[in-house]
Each structure stands twice: as structure tokens, then as C-alpha cells.
Nucleic acid binder design. Structure first.
Lengths: 152, 152
DNA sequence: TATTGTTATACTCTATAACTATA
DNA sequence: TATAGTTATAGAGTATAACAATA
């Protein structure tokens, strides 16, 4: 090799990266994250906002420590998310009666309403992903991800 | 419902989230990213550093615009990564001779050496993931991710 | 003494505008 | 006029330490 130009002028050899599961998953995750951001833009909900609202809806009275653990967000950062959603009137904190340290979270009527409005968009996005995958690969992907939940 | 305590004291209902491909992929991606960070900690290489070095090794003389596109990093942010790796003596910029606007990148001897040192760790991590998946799910996951490359 | 949540703060990552030098 | 790369800067995301209130 004498020149300082790349071997292929336009196409790059990415094979050593695309072989790696980590690289592939990171790329796909980014693409899906952007898709979700678009889908939720009109509701002004980021992924973490949406996830939190869903969890509170499914588990009324859940406390912030539990949410922080599941969502993999530190308690200080979760407090920021909670404050943001409270300010929008979507979320309500209720001091624990037995244990007054806890803040039990509930959706407000507005929060429940907004969450309901998002449902169609979320289902459409999910359908779009499953359509892209086809029925076989859809199941396979979920099964594979389930196995990776138990990483040391 | 009268109490403000959650339905289940310890276990939360996450089913509405875990059904969603996006949520599952995000969680898995984060877990794998952390694993990779641990694997590369002793080399002081972040994912983007590693990816860039691999691409430059496989495509000597590649320019920064091409790298920015593939790595999904904006040109200003790529310049920061490049500067960091140059400061460590792992990377070398060569001004284009036909087109003097371009910076063609090459690994230095030290860069090539460090990259070679990482190879075992990277292969071990990949093997660990594939072992966790099992041969069937490993292939299936890669096939599914390939299909998601072509998202609108 | 340990736990829940908060405040403050720092660090990283990401995104954008404006600039240079070249074409 | 358009492109490659850089600088500067702002914003979002993430991490940690210290604190208040409660157990």
C-alpha cells in the first residue's frame, strides 16, 4: 500500500464491527429509539417518561425506589423525571401513611388520559417493527432478548 | 382501591413494558454496553473509540466524514474522539494530497498494537454472549437485527 | 444506623452554529 | 457555492456526594 486513500473510495469494510452483537444491538437500539421519539413527539413524552407512566398505571402507588430500580435510573435522576411529569399535571405523589419516607405515585386523570392517547401510536410502532421482522423473526428476537436478560 | 400502597409489595407488573420490543432492546443494549465498558476498561477504550480504531484498521486512509456517517456521530463530535485518540498516539491524520480538505486516518504502531491486545477480550465477550444465547438464538438474533437495519 | 427521596453538582454525550481551508 | 474539518457552546443524560426526614 502506497496511497493514503482508502482501499474502497465509497464503500467501507465494516465486517469486523457488524460481526459483533454489541455493535449491531447498539445500532438497532438507536434506530428504534429515534423512531419512538418521533412517535411520541406530539405527546412530548421521552422513553423514560412513557415507561414511568405505564409502570405507574399498572402499579398505582408504586414508590420511586422501585421505579428507579426497574428503569435503571438513579434516584436523583428519577426525581427529576417525576418533577417534570408532576409539573405537567400527569403525576401525583402521595406520602406513605405507614412509612412517611415513601412517595407513592399515581396517575392523575390527565396522566391517564394522555397515556390512553399514546396507546394507538405505540401499538402502531410495535406493529411496524413486527412487520419488518416477520412473524418468525419477531418471536425469535423476543426469545433471544429474554435469554440476554440473565447476563452476569 | 382504597390504599395508596402498590398492589404487589415487592413484585411490580412490568408486562406492558416487556411486551414492547423497544423497551426490551434498550434494556439489553444497556446491559451489553456496560459489559463492553468493563471488558475495555483496562485498555481505556470506550465503544466509540474501539469502533473507530477497528474501522481505521480495516480501512486505512478512511476520512472523518465517512467515519462520522457509519458511527452515527456528528463531525464535530467525531473530531473530539479523533483528537483524544491522537493525543494517546494511537491514531495519525494525513492530509489528503489530491484533496487537501480531507484528513485520512491511519493507526500508529501503538494503535495497532493496542487494538491487537483487545482482540482476545472482545472475542471472549462475544463468545460469552453467544453462549448465553445458545447456537440457535445467536443466529436468530443476528438475523432479526439484520432485518431491522432497513427501518424507514 | 439504614432507607427514601431531594438538592446540588460534575461529567459525559449529543446537537448546532459559525468558522477555516480547500475545492 | 459546496464540502471537510474544527472550534465553541448549549443541551440532555448520567453519576455521585451530601443532606433532610423518617424508620
Amino acid at each position: 500500500m502506497t496511497s493514503d486513500a482508502p482501499a474502497s473510495p465509497d464503500t467501507l469494510d465494516q465486517s469486523r464491527l457488524t460481526r459483533l452483537l454489541g455493535f449491531r444491538i447498539t445500532r438497532t437500539e438507536l434506530r428504534i429509539r429515534r423512531l419512538f421519539l418521533e412517535c411520541m413527539a406530539r405527546f412530548e413524552l421521552k422513553p423514560v417518561d412513557y415507561s414511568l407512566l405505564v409502570l405507574v398505571d399498572a402499579n398505582p402507588g408504586v414508590n420511586q425506589r422501585q421505579l428507579a430500580e426497574i428503569l435503571d435510573v438513579s434516584p436523583p435522576n428519577l426525581a427529576i423525571v417525576v418533577a417534570r411529569l408532576m409539573k405537567r399535571g400527569l403525576l401525583r405523589q402521595v406520602r406513605g401513611q405507614q412509612d412517611r419516607r415513601m412517595q407513592h405515585l399515581h396517575l392523575t386523570a390527565a396522566g391517564k388520559e394522555l397515556l390512553d392517547e399514546t396507546e394507538l401510536a405505540v401499538r402502531e410502532m410495535e406493529a411496524r417493527l413486527l412487520e419488518q421482522l416477520g412473524p418468525t423473526h419477531g418471536e425469535a428476537l423476543l426469545a433471544a432478548l429474554a435469554r440476554l436478560e440473565h447476563l452476569a
